[in-house]
Design a protein around this nucleic acid. Structure first.
Lengths: 230, 230
DNA sequence: AATTACCGCGAACATCGATCGCAGTATTGG
DNA sequence: CCAATACTGCGATCGATGTTCGCGGTAATT
């Protein structure tokens, strides 16, 4: 009989016998999210969380079986930040576009979301609400269930791609930028990559396009390509 | 004076003084790639590589300053597998489409590529050739350098999204599938997510679309959205 | 021939995720 | 009402990881 890896959402939050837990999954997730917002996913370690909670590292494992469970918790918690009370208009494109915009904001607020291994996530309750909402937007669209799920998955992927692009433009990691500059110089020097040299030379001068605008245009294209009525 | 994190591509492969290195960056990258192909990025550890090479873990650091450097090496090496001798037709759409298809094959051959932190990669020589090739396809398109770079980045992102979708459909991780089934049952039971229940119930029966076909359609849409002449 | 700069690598350190087992506490069943 | 039960908190610890130190040796430079 193989061990049951049993997604955390299937285990009860607390047992029926002993004393009440001193902390809750929600509290732990909140602390972990603060750590991740500040220092990225790598900063989310058993001991850092324990320290922030004022306990030893072992205590966490009463709430969570594994670090992955913890990330599931975090993922689900921030997914709950997306406002699902926005009424659907009935136009799938508009509705998904609006949802995508809200999701993009979420990614900008919690950049570590982009580092969560993509399909590793197990659907938590908040994520289920999210997915249900997205499927509701597609309710009257003639597609198979599988295609709808794929479409939502791709849409979220595109959202993350754009969020990535925007974040990468926003912050100025001095160390990296210096290294890039040095290497660019070498590339320009050897003369074998003239187009790269040209594109990168101009790139810092070219005005960036309004991210929101290009995001909306691309998302529309994606949805059209997915077979939605345009 | 801050330490120079100096991208690995800026350091010489070997010094001028001492004995010749017994191994090369290429050999190490090849071993690491084999490990990653077999067991994912997580299986690429200092000691595993050292063991495969028949040495101790410390020896690696004569070739690589950090694990990230090692991943840069791997990334660049597999990027070199993309055939850039395919002549360009002059039609940017066709050329990028063809390049994207080859890139998609690469991702399917080396699934760990999808786990490489996206913008962390420092442009190696092979990757530079790749980028130069892509820029050549865009040579006569009236876009700023920055927009071209963004377009290529987005295109590669889309390629990875599709590769992910396809891989996820291909393999059948029994443990996960069982957990998902259990959770799906609970979702269907509580009745609060009827659309999810319906979509997932059908999803295993619905015929999958030909991946290549949907990939090409979506890529066309993306390129059109990026402002390429269609 | 002496100096210098490099190579291989055993030993060790810090940190990480995770486990074990014990003391304490609330619920259950008789 | 009290033992049995099943849980909670957590110090100590394990194994694995990325990385550093410093040694003995080797080849190029002077």
């Amino acid at each position: 009989m193989p061990e049951e890896p049993a997604s955390i959402w299937l285990r009860p939050e607390r047992g029926a016998r002993g004393p009440a837990p001193e902390r809750s999954r929600a509290q732990i997730a909140a602390v972990a999210i603060d750590l991740a917002d500040a220092g990225g996913l790598a900063a989310v370690s058993t001991r850092q969380i324990a320290k922030a909670l004022g306990t030893g590292p072992a205590s966490l494992y009463r709430y969570v079986a594994t670090r992955d469970d913890l990330i599931d918790l975090m993922h689900d918690a921030v997914t709950g930040e997306v406002d699902l009370s926005v009424p659907l208009t009935g136009d799938p494109i508009d509705d998904l576009l609006s949802l995508a915009a809200r999701t993009r904001d979420l990614c900008l607020r919690h950049p570590w979301l982009l580092d969560v291994p993509v399909e590793r996530t197990r659907l938590g309750p908040r994520a289920a609400d999210y997915l249900e909402y997205a499927l509701r937007a597609l309710q009257h669209v003639p597609m198979t269930g599988r295609r709808k799920l794929e479409a939502i998955s791709l849409l979220n992927g595109l959202v993350m791609l754009f969020a990535q692009l925007e974040l990468q433009e926003r912050r100025t990691p001095t160390a990296r930028q210096a290294a890039q500059a040095a290497y660019r110089a070498q590339l320009a020097a050897d003369g074998r990559h003239p187009l790269i040299a040209a594109a990168m030379a101009g790139s810092s001068l070219d005005p960036p396009e309004d991210p929101g605008q290009s995001f909306e245009r691309m998302t529309r294209q994606l949805l059209a390509g997915l077979g939605l009525p345009g």
